[in-house]
Simulated scan of single mutants.
Amino acid sequence: MYIGTKGWFVSELKKIGVSYYEGRKIESYKASILANLLESKKN
């Protein structure tokens, strides 16, 4: 898996305990939304 791909963002978010966002699974979002979500959760 390459850094910055959708799958990478999903796995990084699951490592910190995020599986759902706004009632939907994180797999259903685009990579750009997941990137922003990961950045906000790390801060």
Rank of each mutant, 00 (worst) to 15 (best):
M1I: 10
M1E: 10
M1S: 12
I3V: 11
I3P: 15
T5K: 12
K6Q: 05
G7D: 04
G7Y: 03
G7L: 12
W8T: 00
F9D: 00
V10Q: 03
V10L: 07
S11N: 14
S11K: 15
S11Y: 07
S11G: 10
S11H: 15
S11D: 09
L13C: 03
L13E: 00
L13A: 01
L13R: 03
I16L: 14
G17M: 10
G17K: 13
G17H: 08
V18A: 03
S19F: 09
S19M: 14
Y20S: 11
Y21M: 08
Y21E: 02
Y21R: 11
E22K: 14
E22C: 11
E22G: 07
G23N: 09
R24A: 04
K25D: 01
K25R: 13
I26Y: 01
I26P: 05
E27N: 12
E27M: 08
K30T: 00
K30P: 07
K30D: 02
A31V: 06
A31G: 09
A31L: 10
S32R: 14
S32Y: 08
S32F: 08
S32E: 08
S32L: 13
I33Y: 06
I33F: 13
L34N: 01
A35R: 14
A35L: 13
A35K: 15
N36P: 12
N36A: 15
L37I: 04
L38N: 06
L38G: 05
L38H: 06
K41E: 04
K41P: 08
K42T: 02
N43R: 15
N43L: 14
